[in-house]
Design a protein around this nucleic acid. Structure first.
Lengths: 120, 120
DNA sequence: CTGGATCCAGCCTGATACTG
DNA sequence: CAGTATCAGGCTGGATCCAG
């Protein structure tokens, strides 16, 4: 939306794309949704550092942008599943490409970090 | 594919990647550096919405992350050129892929924005 | 031209409490 | 379980000034 003057047509598309997914959490969320649909708490557990509120917001935004879809099961207790839309699934090559780059990045910068995903 | 293990530690790489480039401006800057090296003001003019301060910061961060390199010409007035490093250039497929997605995104969301402007 | 430092308003975020 | 509302505090980014 806040898409204003730019240096030409070329930047437009990537800017639009970045506007939607250029966010660490969004990217990671989308990445984790590449597989099967996930429930809210499932995602929440996946990202301990991501607060409840933020996760909610990110999911909302992604949903509004048509990248993920939210399926509510009218049950008690509530059950909601998030999955990629067709549009979201189109991001798969990009995300995987980014992951590949991430590997290179860590290699080349000799990042001596451990890939522990559990920080709970 | 290992689509079943997206919950695991594999997220590390994409997380690392997103941590570095998951920023609208960084992405756009990198995109525009895919071509020839650019000077500071050149970039600044390219992104009117991006403030002097932010551009400086983003460039610094990208530089520190080894994605772009900064070449200073010891002249008066100063001249500095920014270009992609080898690592940064590895992002090209990802960025282009993202751009392609951006096209789809705009199409599918029926974004009625006009991306035809002049190319400078 | 490039870019650092400072000030300050505004947004954003996490925590918490509450609803269905 | 899933999600919203509220609020205080921190962080961020823009504007500005200064420097090489």
């Amino acid at each position: 939306m806040r898409h204003t003057s730019f240096d030409g047509a070329r930047g437009c598309y990537i800017e639009a794309a970045l506007e939607v997914i250029a966010d660490k959490w969004k990217g990671v969320i989308l990445y984790h949704l590449l597989g099967e649909p996930k429930r809210f708490n499932q995602l929440k557990r996946t990202f301990p550092e991501l607060s409840h509120r933020m996760l909610t917001r990110q999911l909302r935004e992604l949903e509004n942008d048509g990248i993920i879809s939210r399926k509510v099961y009218p049950e008690i207790p509530p059950k909601v599943e998030y999955s990629l839309t067709d549009l979201g699934r189109l991001l798969e090559p990009t995300l995987l490409s980014l992951e590949v780059w991430g590997v290179r990045y860590i290699e080349m910068t000799r990042y001596s970090r451990n890939c522990q995903s559990d920080k709970s």
